[in-house]
Design a protein around this nucleic acid. Structure first.
Length: 215
DNA sequence: CCCTGATTCGC
DNA sequence: GCGAATCAGG
């Protein structure tokens, strides 16, 4: 299978949404390996994303073995207006009791504007430490409450798309999958239909991500 | 071991 | 352009 526009679009979307290469490859199906996904992603130029590996580390460190204790850090005044997200409920003084993030939450640093990319050459110096205010766990903002977004997809939930990418309310079914299938039982019924002898057959629904793989 | 992404290089 | 092989960190 070649990289059709459709598949490339899927790749881009999922990659930018923070899905792992494996997940994307799995979603694309057709024997696409995660290497293929990564390779294609690089060729598309969307490689900037957190990687567990820093192969080419050591960015030209001074040969001088002496450590520079305090480098005159340019005090880049951070005029951050700091929009305070006001909590509705009066937060009790007790800190949230181990409200640990879900392990499967694949959220990276997704801001309302998208991803924080870093180009190799231009990296902003680390922001001034002092976190002035308490940090509110930034929801993906656009995250439609109660709906399954791309970020929520995993192997176990139905990937049946509802709506269209780009639309504000685009989301996925989110039901538990029919084991062995990318969709829930219900949507499997839509995706996989016995051949009907009828002539007036309903037009098939759009296949998510270019259709399920055939193993 | 498993996972991850990055890179290389023959095709 | 493609992706398996390989590398390297978590």
């Amino acid at each position: 299978m070649s990289w059709t526009d459709e598949r490339i679009e899927t790749l881009k979307t999922m990659w930018e949404a923070g899905q792992t290469a494996s997940q994307i490859a799995d979603a694309l199906g057709d024997g696409v390996s995660r290497n293929a996904v990564i390779g294609k992603a690089h060729r598309l130029g969307l490689q900037a994303r957190p990687s567990p590996v820093r192969s080419s580390e050591a960015p030209a460190e001074q040969e001088a073995p002496s450590l520079q204790a305090a480098e005159p850090e340019p005090v880049v005044a951070e005029p951050e207006p700091e929009p305070v997200v006001e909590e509705e409920e009066a937060a009790p003084p007790a800190p949230a009791p181990a409200s640990e993030p879900r392990p499967e939450m694949v959220l990276r640093s997704v801001g309302p504007g998208g991803f924080v990319r870093q180009s190799p050459g231009e990296q902003q110096p680390p922001a001034t430490p002092a976190p002035p205010r308490r940090l509110v766990p930034a929801k993906p903002s656009a995250e439609i409450a109660g709906k399954t977004s791309l970020l929520d997809l995993n192997d176990r939930i139905c990937k049946w798309p509802l709506g269209h990418p780009g639309e504000p309310d685009f989301h996925f079914c989110g039901e538990k999958v029919n084991p062995g299938f990318p969709y829930c039982v219900n949507h499997c019924g839509h995706a996989y239909q016995a051949q009907l002898p009828r002539r007036d057959r309903r037009p098939p629904p759009p296949m998510p991500f270019g259709g399920p793989r055939v193993r």
